[in-house]
Nucleic acid binder design. Structure first.
Lengths: 358, 358
DNA sequence: TTGTAGGCGTTATCAA
DNA sequence: TTGATAACGCCTACAA
């Protein structure tokens, strides 16, 4: 089935059928009805390739997640981001294609770039885990490919969606301090990711504001993986000289790993060491103890990225679109708060009240 | 840059350039060199849409994961499957597009079908979590769309890759029984997924072979999510009448949830209740205690699915391709084995020996 | 080994 | 409101 055949069967020209398919209003009601009838009866559907060849638009968006930043895709953060992205794509009648650099050293990214970007497979790109100095960013700018970052980019005037990691981390650490903890360690992500940098900065700010001198030896940088958190915590625990009473992890996955290491050591959470995560993954509600964390709207980040990207594709010369989404501190039991029972009884809903600092 | 321009610059015809680009051998060395030089100098890359319009091949494969089967994408199984799939696609110079049904009721799948399948956006499809009676399967057959299932399909002669879930589950449960456990419960996935069905059957077989009468009240069907496992275990624990001494979970995510519920109840793993998972996720190695499980080659399932699909696209009328990949029992601490320390010391490598049943 | 020419199924620009 | 008619960029017989 092609436009041509539909046109013949409906007794009109290709152009008219094309207009009907594309919702052009310059078609008489009679003609439209006739055409739609024929289309429905024959299950006609426009051919994507022909369409994009003629219109110079593929209606495909690419999501690039680079694995070289540390097996990142195993972080439960990404699947949720993908979901939000796919959701928004569906809503906008667009397709989502995954550009995954499955090489260890990032070498596959060049091949992907050639095939997908230069081959004009996509109308634009969403970058999900770029390093602060990622060479892809200037390159995309140069090649004038519309793109949106998930995670802000310092310096360059590029489009992005993000949360205010600095403020959120600061609030989270301040919360630990409000529990009376003073020897607060941090398990941080790779120092070339802006999220890790910002969360670390927020941690430092909170300590300073409370008059607690930050101690660099209490900060460990590692992969954004559960295993990374596990190892990092083991390391922190080995340092006999500073007996910690709290740890702030830059992601929930890191926090889960840290919790395992703490418990393996025979220490109690939060009694001996309080733990605070960052992400707000569902898993945290059922962990043992339930994980206090900063909830960020992960799926919405994906959705907003798509919206921004579509806008960018529409107006390639517009100003960069930059948007921050709100976060929410979600105290559960691991920080020392006493509301786990409430949550448990209510079946997992997050109470936005009744926050008792014990 | 188009073929035409490259041809002009190289002093040859479009056809010759096309042949060079597509690796056709019927080109003189001289011409090939000249063309390749011009191509390189001008960063020419063929236009995907034009190419697929003419060749009737998109070089795009679709991966369909339906969310309606229970928020499935949150299971860490899927990201790894995606990785394997993307990896194989990259290797074969193909693109991967995600068809995610983000609706709750599966209504979006129809829209996706129209746009992607009928629009001939993809050359073929991989179905990652189809119900045993998924209406998509007969439909794809009818529409003669090449497709491969991840997870076998009873009855119909379709292509698939899978592991032998029945045998693997049987071995896992037999292992629990070998530890002297007799009151073994099972937390199972949705009963309309073949993986859940097969693993349950393996569980029953193992019990019967050991002369232990299976008790239906000890089996709970739920979502393949951590939360599902948590809830299911809570339910099992509430039943005062049967005091369990082991539980077999049909996935690692389920097992993690179950472990949380057990520990929340103040019971010890494996002393009071032994736990066995299924998947072999990395997270299990660092859980508290480390999770005994059945390791299946998840990424390889994705890779094999791609290979099979490409073969199917090549020869649409060939016989269905069906392949089973091997699994491996990975005893850690949660089942009662005593080799956790070994593994710990060696930094996470899985010892294939020294399996001591205590 | 090379070139010619038609076609792939649309969209978009004009005229009518 | 409609319909010709060119593109769009590439592949592929077929002919040379």
């Amino acid at each position: 089935m092609t436009l041509e055949e539909i046109a013949r069967l409906a007794g009109v020209s290709r152009s008219t059928v094309s207009r009907v398919v594309n919702g052009d209003r310059r078609v008489s009601e009679a003609a439209r009805a006739r055409v739609q009838d024929v289309i429905a009866r024959h299950h006609y559907h426009p051919h994507a390739a022909a369409r994009s060849l003629a219109s110079r638009r593929t209606r495909v968006l690419g999501l690039l997640v680079s694995q070289s930043v540390g097996g990142l895709f195993t972080d439960p953060f990404y699947p949720i981001l993908v979901q939000g992205t796919a959701d928004a794509c569906n809503a906008a009648d667009h397709n989502l294609t995954m550009l995954m650099d499955t090489s260890q050293d990032g070498s596959a990214v060049e091949q992907l770039y050639q095939r997908v970007i230069r081959g004009r497979h996509v109308d634009g790109l969403i970058l999900a885990c770029h390093a602060v100095d990622d060479p892809l960013v200037p390159r995309l700018q140069e090649d004038r490919i519309p793109f949106v970052l998930v995670g802000r980019h310092p310096g360059a005037a590029v489009s992005f969606v993000d949360v205010d990691s600095h403020a959120a981390a600061r609030e989270a650490v301040a919360h630990l301090l409000a529990h009376g903890r003073r020897r607060v360690a941090m398990i941080c992500g790779p120092p070339n990711l802006i999220a890790a940098i910002d969360r670390h900065a927020g941690y430092v700010t909170a300590l300073q504001e409370a008059g607690v001198p930050p101690e660099p030896s209490r900060v460990v940088f590692t992969d954004f993986t559960q295993r990374g958190g596990y190892r990092a915590m083991q390391g922190l625990l080995h340092e006999r000289d500073h007996s910690l009473d709290a740890v702030f992890a830059a992601s929930d996955a890191l926090a889960f790993g840290a919790m395992a290491a703490i418990q393996e050591r025979g220490l109690r959470i939060p009694d001996d060491i309080a733990v605070m995560g960052f992400d707000g993954l569902a898993e945290g509600a059922d962990s043992q103890p339930p994980l206090s964390t900063v909830t960020q709207p992960v799926a919405d980040l994906g959705r907003e990225a798509v919206r921004a990207l579509l806008a960018l594709i529409e107006r390639p010369d517009g100003a960069p679109l930059q948007r921050f989404l709100p976060t929410r501190l979600t105290p559960r039991r691991s920080c020392g708060c006493a509301l786990a029972s409430i949550e448990g009884r209510r079946g997992g809903a997050e109470p936005a009240f009744a926050l008792s600092i014990a």
